[in-house]
Structure formats: structure tokens, C-alpha cells
Design a protein around this nucleic acid. Sequence first.
DNA 1: CCACTAAAGCAAATATTTTGCGTTAATAGC
DNA 2: GCTATTAACGCAAAATATTTGCTTTAGTGG
Lengths: 194, 194
Amino acid sequence: MNQMTTPRPGGRSARIQRAVHHAVRELERELPREALTLPRIAERAGVTPSTLYRRWGNLAELLADVNLESMRPDKPPADTGTLTGDLQAWSEQYYEELASRPGQRMLRDVLASDDADRRRCCSDLNRAQMQTILQRAHERGEAAPAVETLMERLVAPLIYYLLYDAEAVDRSHLERWVEEAVSRGPAGRPETRR
Amino acid sequence: MNQMTTPRPGGRSARIQRAVHHAVRELERELPREALTLPRIAERAGVTPSTLYRRWGNLAELLADVNLESMRPDKPPADTGTLTGDLQAWSEQYYEELASRPGQRMLRDVLASDDADRRRCCSDLNRAQMQTILQRAHERGEAAPAVETLMERLVAPLIYYLLYDAEAVDRSHLERWVEEAVSRGPAGRPETRR
DNA sequence: CCACTAAAGCAAATATTTTGCGTTAATAGC
DNA sequence: GCTATTAACGCAAAATATTTGCTTTAGTGG
């Protein structure tokens, strides 16, 4: 059921997968969420609905699959020269992306998925970005917290507010979370090991 | 669309709402999620499906409404005598509740809702629990952090992991989050004001 | 190039959602 | 209390969406 592993990648299946993903992205831009229907997607992709039902099971899983792909970052986080700067830049762009109408929809559609692997994968994308930023800090010789500290102090609050009350967040929140993440808590001094 | 404000609370509407909520809770225990269908709920509640479509719009919003009610705590958090103890107890029971199969479903169904007020309400339930615990700490004369600190350092990481990777959490995580939440970060000393 | 089979297409059978309209019952004004 | 008003419900027909059995197509391995 997971599209990560396309069986028979060498032709029709892959072609259809691309067509369907493309159709979903187009229709997500054109239609309000409640008008997104599986037969409509099938028609746009030039495929019969039963193909989609057989491959993805239902609309929710299809959207989760496509949106997870859309959330995959196309470029590594911006390099601003400092750990704090990198985190600040990352959090701002991440917030912009997920606070938007389509972003909110993506986030919710992915998290609504029944597939635990898919959800974990989504978190791993965030973690990988944090790793990249920490790796750079390390190379510069900056003291840097553990990756889980960044997940708990920056990513988690950010996602929490994006999900429950996106409007309540502003730049000052992001700055505070970044600051508190890099200066680590009293429970542990800043760590340098990657 | 929101059930918080039942129009004509004085009779049939309220009766039907109760019957429907009850039917959903029963069927959630009896059936796997994908078998939960709106006509089935209507039948169990002794109501015609069109009533449900007209009042709630679709299955997702109905489930979100019912599950939000289910998440409303029936009793205040346990009083263990200390702030740390209260937070530890609360986080353990909250984790137990939401890491379970039905808990995971509740959480996702509520957060999948389109209704921003409903989602915010869900967060406010958590915040109110934290407030209660802080209020007690204050009465005992304990130093205590601001409520938002608890939200960011304890509630947010907890929810984040429950959503993305519930199996990755164990008691030691909870203990750490509690500890780091009460000892506040370097960015601000423990606060006493409520 | 052929045999095999996973995946797609097609179409009939089900199930669901939506809608128009008549009916019921809660509420407000008297 | 009694009546007028109207929100919400029930019913049933129509429109959509989903499931399923069977056929066809086209990758893949020999």
C-alpha cells in the first residue's frame, strides 16, 4: 500500500504513479478540499478509479502519500553561517510553508494517515534537516545540542501550534524556541558531539 | 456545524445529539475504523442518515466532534503533593490514553477536523489541566513556570511523538520532559506568578 | 521470443452522499 | 395555555462514490 516501494518500477506502474501524483497536485490547487474526489483525480490522471482504489485504498491514503512527497525538501536548509541563524531561517520557512492553506492541508492529510511508517517518515524528514544543520555547526566548531533537543524544543512546539492553533504563532515565538533549543536546558550542557 | 452550540437545546435536537454520540462511541469499540460508516451510525442511533449529513456534514467532522467530547477530562489531574509529581502523573496517564489504539484514533480524528475552533479547543483542554496543576503549585508556595512553558516543553513534545511515532516514547522521555519543563530554560528563571 | 503474472481496464453490483419536499416539534408572542 | 413560526427531522429519489469479478495489457524472467 505504500508507494515508496513501487513494484515493477519499469514502466506502466511508475508512469501511472507519476500521472496520479501530478493530477492530485493540480487538483489541490484548483479545488477546495471537499471537492477533491477520487474519481475526479482518476479522470484527470487518465486512469480508471478502480486502479486508484486498488493501489491506494482510499482518498485519505492517496492524499497522504502525495503530500508526504510534497513535503520532502528539495534543497538543504539555508546556510547562514551560524547555528542560530540556520535554525531561525529554517523555522521561518517551515512555518511559512505549513501555516499556509495548502500547507495546513498537507500536514493534516499526512498525519491523518493510518500508515505509521509514513508518519514516522514525515518526522524523519524534519530530523534529517536538523541533522544537516547540526553537522554544519559541528564543522564550524560551534557548540551544538543533540538532535533530539532540537526536535523537542523547536520542531515539536512548532508542529504543535501549527496543528492546534496556527494563528497564535508569530516570529517572536520562533526566535524564543530557537534560542531555548540552542542554549539547552539546565538538564544538560550544550553538547558538541554529533 | 459546531455542536458546542446546540440550537434548540430543549428537546429533540439534544436527544438526537446524545443518541448519535452514544452510537459513535459504541461502534468505535465494536468496529475497526474503516468500517465506521455514517449510515451505520445513523442506524444504531435510530436516526436517518440525512440528519447526520445535514448536522455534521460528513463522517470526519462527526467523529471529530464526538472524540473531542471524549477527550474532555472527567476529573482534574491527580494531586500528588508536588508540581513535578503532578506533571509526571498527568503525562503518564495522558500518554497511556493517547498511545492506545482508540486514543490514537481520537487524536487523529480531532486534528483532521477542518474546524479551527475545535482544534484550538482541544489544545485549551490541555492548557486548562496545566493551569490547574500550576494553580496548586502556587498555592503550595512552589516555584512554577509559566503555563506556556509547560505547553512547549511537556505537552508539545508529547503530542508530537504521539502523532509521528508513538512507539518511540517511554517513561524516561516523560520524566525528562517534566524535569526540563519545571526547571525552565536559561532563557528565564522559574516564575511564580500564575 | 515466449510464458508468466502483477497491475490496469471495464462494467455491473453496492454503498454512500445529496437533495427536494412533506412532517414534526421547539420556541416566541400573545 | 394557545397559536404562529420555523428549525430540524424523516423519507425517498437521484446523484456519486466504492467495491468486485472478470478480461486485457504489458513488465519481467527464462
